[in-house]
Every structure is written in C-alpha cells, then in structure tokens.
Write a protein that binds this DNA or RNA. Structure first.
Lengths: 193, 193
DNA sequence: TACTCTAGAGAACGATCGTTCTCGGCGCCA
DNA sequence: TGGCGCCGAGAACGATCGTTCTCTAGAGTA
C-alpha cells in the first residue's frame, strides 16, 4: 500500500465514522483499525487529528456538491426544473440509510467554536453551495436571482436539519413545495417588448 | 446554598458553557469552578453528565420558546404580523453577541447518534416550535395551515444555521422575506359569501 | 550472506475525562 | 462541651484520548 492509497483509505474511513458518530466520538486507534492503515502511516499522512478532520470535510464538500450537480444535470431541463431537482436529490439523500444531517453543520456545532479550520470549512461549503444555487437561479428571469438563492439556501439547510432530527425525509418535499412557490412568486421584470 | 439554588446555578452555568463551546468541550470540573457548586453537590443534583445535559436542553427549550412567544405577543397585532414577528425575534437573536446557532441542532450533531436523550430533546424542541408556529398559522385564512407551518419551520431552522455559520444575521431577514411570500401566496379558500 | 532502511504492531506516555473517595471543618442538639 | 452528621476542597481512580517510541521482521542491494 503506497502513500496515496493509505491517504485515500483514511479519508474514506474518516468520512464514514466521523459522519456516523461525530468527530470526537471516533479515536485515532479506531480509525487505524477500521482503515487498515498503521498508526505510523496515519500520522505521516495527517500529522494531527485536526488535519484529518479538515481533509475529511474538504473531500466531503467536493463529493457532495459533485453528486448534487450530477443529479441536476441529469434531471433538469428548464432552469426551474433544475432548481426543483435540487430538492429531489435532497429528498433521496435524506431518505438514504445512514443519513444524519449535514456533516458541516454537525461539525460546526461540535467544533466550530474551538477549531478555526472546521468553522472555515463549514463556511466555505455553505458559500460554495450558495454560489451553485445562485448560478441556477441566474437562469430564471427574476429580478434578483441572488436574493432568491439566499431564500432557497434557507430551505435547503432547514430541510436537511429537520429531516435529520425528525428522521423524516418529508421535510425535503415541504422544502420543494416552498421553493416552487418562491420561484413562481419571485418578482420579475416585464418581458422585454 | 440549598439544593434548588445549586441546581439552578448548575443549569445556568451549563447553559452558558455548553452552548458556548459544545458539550464535550466542557468538563465537570470546569462546571464546578464556574458555578461555585461543589462536585459532591453537583453529583447529588445530577447523577451523571448526561442527565445534566438533558436538563440543560429541557430548560433551554422552555426559555427559548417563552422568549419567542413573549416577543410575538408584544409585537404582533394581526395573524400575519405575529408570524412575521417570529423572524424579527430571530434576527435579534442571531445578531446578539455569543450567538452560536441552535443549541438543539448543535447538540444533536455532537451527541445525537450516541445519546437517545439528546436526540429526543432535540426532537421534542423542534416539535414544540412547530406546534407553536402551526398555532400562529391557524389564525390565517389559508387552506392548509399545517403545510405552511412546515415550510416556515424550514426557514426558521435554515436561518439559524446559516446565520451561525456565516456569522451574518441577515439570514433571518432573508427568511422573513421568504416567509412573507409564502404566507401571501399560500392557497386560500374563497371568502365565505 | 550481511547491511541498511522502512514499515507495522503495539506498548508507552502524558493529559484529561467522568466519577468516587478521603479528610478536615463547621453547625446542631443534648 | 462533646459527639454526630453534613459539607466543601481536592486527591484519587480507572478509562480513554492523541501522539510518540520501541522492537521486530522483511525487502532491497552489494
């Protein structure tokens, strides 16, 4: 096993265990056992636990947004459909086994006040998602796509946390309905005539 | 200092420290030092840390909803004003120094997968808030007040987490605007004529 | 074959955690 | 006054954490 494979295995294992049970509930030795990477190599790849945590969050951010973007590309034709497809994907995610809310919100609540790295990773993730949604909203003919994106972001985060705590993915459907209303009722310039 | 005052001091201190830094980051000895209650009495009042955590969450739930309800009673005349006043209060809270998001979402992310008590307290809190908002929505003349309440709940939780992570209370204002749209555009039965 | 280098297994270390125990002192009632 | 009981201060305990160190075995090279 070379350095890159060890690193990849560690990130995979960290993502699974940290998300499942929280960062502080998973020790380095359990990570070693679950990943099959020796403690020595673990500390060669990540000199401290906090660097592993930040690596976990950064990779999860990339994967999460890539999966969302893929789904939207495959299932949305019009600009409005693409925005609503976001909530289809959210619903599927919230209904998936092992769903436990947003990894970034969870980590922020656990460590955000102590670790600048975790707080920054959460901020960066939310900002990136906002930019993605804002890009989707730009394709609508609404007056203020950025304002609409802000509102949709609230529905997204609200649906994720509500689904996690209640255990019911229906929150994503409620968010979808609300998003449809906000999109439909958003102020529009009159069609250029 | 009698038993009740010790208990009250402990809950006050726990609420401040747990909310500020997370549950696992605060040790029992620090709680003793900050509250001025001896360790012996601490364990007489709360036989284990997890019971103190649940006590903290339960009392925070009561106080949080009482403060919200007070504000709504004082600042909302019509049913719609009362619903929008919820978001005024949220904005003030998100802008207050020391704001760090929703104590229940934070605790759920940190301990929800390990502690049934924490997960249950978070569920109960969210359910109680939902009922409160649903009661407010009942006073509107909309077809489905419960569905509207579900949507507004998403905006509330979304605003809290977004404001916490971004550090910008403007999220509560965005939520208020979206709430206004959802209330205005909600399907209504025709006025009984 | 002998030497060197590296990696893995796991012990070890110091810190900290939740929880319990010990000890000394103060109030209370006869 | 003297014995009793409760209290706070803090030591102690066992567990666990993140991190480092030791030891041994095997691969590669002359």
């Amino acid at each position: 096993m070379d350095h890159d494979e060890a690193r990849s295995r560690l990130l995979d294992t960290a993502e699974r265990l940290f998300y499942e049970r929280g960062v502080q509930a998973v020790g380095m030795d359990e990570l070693r056992a679950a990943s099959g990477v020796s403690l020595k190599r673990l500390y060669q790849c990540f000199p401290s636990k906090s660097e592993l945590v930040e690596g976990y969050l950064r990779r999860r951010d990339e994967r999460w947004r890539a999966a969302l973007s893929d789904h939207v590309d495959r299932h949305g034709a019009t600009a409005q459909d693409r925005l609503l497809a976001v909530f289809d994907w959210l619903h599927a995610w919230c209904a998936a086994p092992g769903f436990r809310g947003c990894a970034f919100i969870n980590s922020f609540g656990e460590l955000g006040s102590v670790s600048d790295g975790v707080a920054g990773a959460a901020r960066d993730h939310k900002r990136a998602v906002r930019e993605y949604v804002a890009d989707l909203a730009d394709d609508l003919r609404v007056d203020d796509p950025a304002a609409l994106a802000d509102q949709l972001l609230l529905l997204i985060d609200g649906a994720i946390t509500t689904a996690a705590i209640s255990g019911d993915p229906a929150a994503a459907r409620h968010a979808q309905v609300a998003a449809g209303t906000l999109i439909t009722c958003a102020p529009r310039r009159p069609a250029t005539a």
